[in-house]
């Protein structure tokens, strides 16, 4: 008899009638359980502030407090590698920079390419390890930003097109051969990755392959090089593209099974990763600071055990000075593809 009342008395609102109905017949046992649940939840809520770090790592350096900005060099990197790699790499580097430059250095993890660029534009990050594309984007949004250094391997960086062996795709002889990828399930890395998306898309375009030519009418974006390899190896995608460096490290660590996934083509070289610094570091940290920063990187040597570890984690023999002009071709490609506007 009471049924119709469910729906009739309701105002035209977001609240569906369900929200206001309770179970009329609950066994006492259940009530007891619910009560203890509630008590637990209440306790958990009270303890919550204790669980939180005093100030989250991302928060402190981003506060616009002038003092923090003056004294602290905030470094970061685009998140295109495994988080544990980044988390091991950057504290080491922060220590080394701090020692050699005589200022406190803090690593700020950023979880998104776009967020890294925006944070740099706003001046929330002082020194960032960008990819070529994100570096150009950041420089365009922050005129005067200084290109500091790149690795030896970044002068002529390569992307590898890879394929699942079961897909039947065979290694190709030249760039024109990329057209075999038409109609295949294909994945890039992250949308803003130079080696995982920008340059490969450029080379694909030259070979006459458009993004809508892939199976499903669009490529996938796996969001990282490691994920691309795993997804192609599993067969989730038939082919993909990764950067040379991550491919090599996955191969040597045994995570990649050469029976299941193979390289089908290596792109020509292009300039990639680099350190980009805010234009105002000299004003904040003293005259000549930017130059000292550059020489610190360039002078990292494998003969020093501490520095060797850093170089090893960066996958480099050494860092070399870099200039904005090196990235002009990237900017041109970026504009062609629409990633730079």
């Amino acid at each position: 008899m009471a049924w119709p009342a469910l729906s009739v008395s309701w105002p035209a609102s977001e609240i569906p009638p369900f929200f206001l109905m309770s179970s009329p017949f609950r066994r006492p046992v259940l009530r007891l359980r619910e009560r203890s649940t509630a008590v637990l939840a209440g306790l958990a809520m009270l303890l919550l502030p204790a669980v939180l770090p005093p100030v989250t790592p991302a928060a402190a350096p981003l506060l616009p407090g002038a003092q923090a900005q003056q004294k602290l060099l905030r470094i970061s990197a685009i998140p295109d590698q495994k988080p544990e790699t980044l988390n091991r790499l950057y504290p080491l580097l922060a220590n080394e920079l701090s020692r050699s430059l005589g200022v406190p250095v803090k690593y700020v993890p950023v979880t998104d390419y776009t967020a890294a660029v925006s944070a740099f534009r706003r001046g929330d990050l002082d020194l960032v390890w960008f990819g070529a594309l994100t570096g150009v984007q950041a420089r365009l949004q922050k005129p005067g930003a200084r290109v500091i250094a790149q690795r030896d391997i970044d002068a002529s960086f390569q992307s590898f097109f890879i394929a699942n062996t079961a897909s039947g795709i065979k290694p190709i002889a030249n760039q024109k051969g990329l057209s075999v990828l038409k109609g295949k399930r294909f994945t890039f890395g992250s949308e803003s990755s130079t080696s995982g998306r920008l340059m490969p898309q450029y080379f694909l375009g030259q070979a006459g392959v458009r993004l809508s030519d892939f199976a499903g009418g669009a490529p996938g974006f796996s969001s990282s090089h490691d994920a691309t390899i795993a997804l192609v190896q599993s067969g989730a995608y038939q082919a993909g593209v990764v950067n040379e460096e991550v491919w090599q490290s996955n191969l040597s660590s045994g995570k990649t099974d050469p029976k299941k996934v193979i390289v089908i083509w290596r792109t020509p070289g292009y300039a990639n990763y680099h350190w980009l610094a805010q234009p105002n570091l000299d004003q904040r940290f003293g005259k000549g600071f930017t130059a000292r920063l550059q020489s610190t990187f360039v002078n990292l040597r494998a003969s020093n055990p501490q520095q060797a570890q850093i170089l090893d984690l960066f996958g480099a023999k050494r860092f070399i000075p870099a200039t904005p002009r090196l990235y002009d071709p990237i900017e041109k490609v970026g504009r062609e593809i629409g990633k730079i506007r």
Binding site: L6, L20, S22, G42
Partner: peptide, 23 residues
């Protein structure tokens, strides 16, 4: 689940109208 349990309990304890509706 804790949060949902808490909300369910409190809803029943405080805000909960009778069986069918606000009355």
């Amino acid at each position: 689940l804790l949060l949902e349990g808490l909300v369910r309990l409190l809803r029943r304890r405080w805000g909960m109208p009778g069986r069918f509706g606000l009355a």
